[in-house]
Simulated scan of single mutants.
Amino acid sequence: MSGYSGRGVHGQLVAELGARIVSGELGRSDVIDLAALGRDLDVSMTALREAMKVLAAKGLVEARQKRGTYVRDREHWNLLDSDVIRWRSQAGDTVAVLRDLAEVRAVVEPAAASMAALRRDDRDLAELDAALAGMADAVGAGAAAEVAADLRWHRAMLRATHNEMLARMDVLIEPALSLRDALVHETAADDPVPSHAAVVEAVRGQDPEAAAAAMTSLLDKAAQDAASVLGGRHTEEEEAVTE
């Protein structure tokens, strides 16, 4: 591989190494020959060591005296990390990533909508309305705009719970939601505004049961859209895990 140059060298190096680990190119439990890897990537040992520190924080590698730096078993990886989620998708694990996302969202977001219905204030409603307007404006404006608008809405709903830990669930939802939306954008998907507006109206009406039901319906449709996009790309066995 040619050397790195210009801005973002550190980020590029982390991404390259992370992708190699997640894909299995750098095998688990393998001791990494840093000198050889540095020559292969045409980077300095200083840059390589800095990148390894980032990967260690994500649970992908560990350095020990006498053993050196080695790839950790998958059970130690931070699978909630946005980079790890992206690298899994790049390695062909998109179906599993989206399946896991759908299951996590089904656990978290209906309950969050229910809680938001009980706790929301005027400021929350204003942000949800603004996010809905942003979604309407983004329709047809391209994948990046539609993804950003969708993420804004989900963040606003999580914040409306007034639970700080739930609000930070966007760290988990964002990368995989971006992946799903980017895939679905290429199809003739339905207008997303009505399904999201139904949740907002239930929250506005302080109806927790209706809010949870509307969110569940929204998530069911999102999962169906993703399964439809992926259906032609995977075997029947892979398709089954998305159901």
Rank of each mutant, 00 (worst) to 15 (best):
S2F: 15
A106E: 10
R105D: 10
A149G: 03
V184M: 03
T46L: 14
A91D: 02
M115D: 01
L13R: 00
R64F: 07
K53N: 07
V104N: 02
D122V: 07
G232P: 01
D121V: 10
A136E: 14
R28C: 10
D170E: 06
A47Y: 02
V193I: 09
A136V: 04
R39S: 05
E164P: 09
R74K: 15
R159A: 14
P110Y: 01
D207A: 14
M52P: 06
E25D: 10
A144H: 10
M52C: 13
D93A: 13
L41D: 03
D220G: 05
R180D: 05
H154N: 08
D190A: 14
S82A: 15
V43Y: 00
D33K: 00
D30Y: 04
G140T: 01
E186R: 12
E237P: 03
L34E: 08
V200T: 13
A126E: 12
E201C: 15
V71F: 14
G68N: 13
L101T: 04
M135I: 13
L37Y: 08
M115A: 06
V229G: 03
V203S: 08
A47E: 01
E239I: 15
L98C: 00
M115N: 03
A144K: 10
S89N: 03
A138G: 07
R204Q: 04
R155K: 11
Q65W: 14
G140N: 01
G134I: 09
R72N: 11
S29T: 11
K53H: 09
E127S: 03
I21V: 13
A160E: 04
D40A: 13
D191P: 06
D33H: 00
H162G: 04
V171M: 11
H154M: 10
A35W: 07
S23Y: 02
A202N: 01
R74D: 15
D137W: 09
A182H: 00
H196L: 13
K221S: 07
E75K: 12
G232Y: 04
A210P: 02
L41Y: 04
I32G: 01
M157G: 11
L179T: 02
L151E: 10
P194M: 12
A56L: 04
T235N: 01
A117T: 11
P208S: 07
Q206T: 15
G11E: 09
P194T: 11
D73S: 15
L118D: 04
V147G: 02
A63W: 14
E236S: 07
T235P: 00
I173H: 13
L166F: 06
W153Y: 14
V22H: 00
L230R: 03
A131M: 06
L26A: 09
V171L: 15
G59A: 02
E103A: 15
V107M: 06
L26Y: 12
L132R: 07
R67E: 08
T161Y: 02
V31S: 03
I32E: 00
A176C: 03
Q65F: 15
A91Y: 04
D220V: 05
G68W: 13
A112E: 05
A198P: 09
R105N: 09
